[in-house]
Design a protein around this nucleic acid. Structure first.
Lengths: 241, 241
DNA sequence: TTTATTAAACGTAAATATAACGTTTATTTT
DNA sequence: AAAATAAACGTTATATTTACGTTTAATAAA
């Protein structure tokens, strides 16, 4: 009697490849105008003009999956060393009517500034879209974004990921706006200030950003060492909501 | 000029499949003798006798990835409706010397009892191994287990996953042992009791398990509704360590 | 040159949660 | 009846969270 368990050993002969493709799709978040935005493609030429999708690519035969994901980020934003993590692999047989395509989704957090905005706008393809007004996307891409936002919120609650959405130097007000954008809530500024300053994550720079008020607001940078520690151990970034 | 961005649209012609295979590997955790155990295969016949590995299988051409993962679980433990979540996709080109094989890892939590133990033992292939004495596994399977335990601990801190490792009816002492096994620490029983009872997760059954002490210890079952809520909102399962 | 304005910064007190311990109870065995 | 012991229960100090009120630094207006 041949046990079905036989099939479970990977030491067996490899089956022949039967046309299964692997793609990578990226959910790229950024905060703009105090709103969480997602980087999307809008197809401008026929066929399928007007169709929105995530940015993605097929994985090459001799390319690590993670490398493929980095490649997309690099190509699109011109930036490297961006926060990027694997989210989930979407592997339903019929998710893509064009064939059996597996998609490994990655999520990224980037700081939207002139630099990378210019790149995506220049190409007239990639566009920032507020999460709150997300259009219908192709295939299961809406599901991907949904999963990504849930994961982002989960992560942001206990890990210091919010900082990835800010420039190297930032103010407490900016940081608060990032958290408000992520969680889509109002945060009490006094409690926010207290908890963040208590976390030991901020290095106080003795200069101010004068662009938003008469008084100006103090600039801070991130304590990288503390950041890495709290990534490991976790820290409560709930702010009373 | 052809922009590299062109390549990022999934609407382009699909490349030909070039022998890329997809496998599923499962990291199955259970608690036995107050210790976290992992379900492994030990190959008993040549070639490669004595090699340990996770349980896994290739994904069939017409099979959803998640279905493949369920299939493994079912085949191995005889159980369905087991806690199972996708962990991570391992996609390095050279992770498997036998060819380009992508592996989608899933993790599961199961209650080790006579029933499923019998199945795995009967086949003389699957074996429970304490996490603390994990042997060298094939390929990148050690890395997979490492990732899974880190994820399990992360999950167990803020989500009520610990209950998945217990029978329908359990005692507070058993539950504490599960958390001690997961986190590999000693937990203060008075604080544990207080926090768990406060969570609203337990339904007090008016009967006792008399098997471990003269006094006996009260049995509880899980409040499923509360469980689902706390899965969503999170709950702090830190116990002072 | 005083006063108004406003974003940013600072402060406090009550309520809740956590951490570190000591004590009592229910049952069986001696 | 007493001893033994796992399980159940209790207390207090400290830390964190929540919900608010107040002051400050700079510019603009009177």
């Amino acid at each position: 009697m041949k046990s079905e368990l036989e099939n479970l050993s990977k030491d067996q002969t490899y089956p022949s490849a039967e046309g299964l493709l692997v793609a990578v799709d990226s959910i790229i978040f950024g905060v703009r105008d105090n709103q969480l935005n997602v980087l999307l493609f809008e197809r401008e030429v026929e066929p399928l003009a007007g169709n929105w999708s995530l940015v993605g690519s097929f994985v090459n035969r001799n390319e690590d999956v993670e490398k493929a994901a980095s490649r997309i980020l690099k190509t699109l934003t011109g930036l490297e060393n961006i926060f990027m993590e694997q989210l989930y692999t979407f592997g339903n047989v019929n998710r893509d009517p064009g064939g059996r395509v597996l998609s490994i989704a990655y999520w990224s957090l980037i700081r939207i500034d002139q630099n990378n905005l210019k790149i995506s706008v220049k190409n007239h393809k990639a566009k920032w879209v507020p999460f709150s007004t997300l259009p219908k996307l192709i295939l299961d891409h809406n599901e991907m974004v949904e999963k990504a936002i849930r994961h982002l919120r989960e992560q942001a609650r206990f890990h210091p990921v919010g900082f990835e959405l800010l420039p190297k130097e930032f103010t407490l007000v900016q940081l608060k706006r990032v958290y408000e954008a992520i969680f889509n809530v109002q945060i009490d500024d006094r409690n926010f200030r207290k908890k963040i300053l208590n976390s030991g994550l901020l290095i106080s720079l003795n200069k101010k950003d004068m662009s938003t008020s008469k008084k100006g607001s103090f600039l801070y940078s991130l304590n990288e060492e503390r950041y890495r520690l709290l990534q490991e151990t976790g820290y409560n970034f709930d702010f009373g909501f």
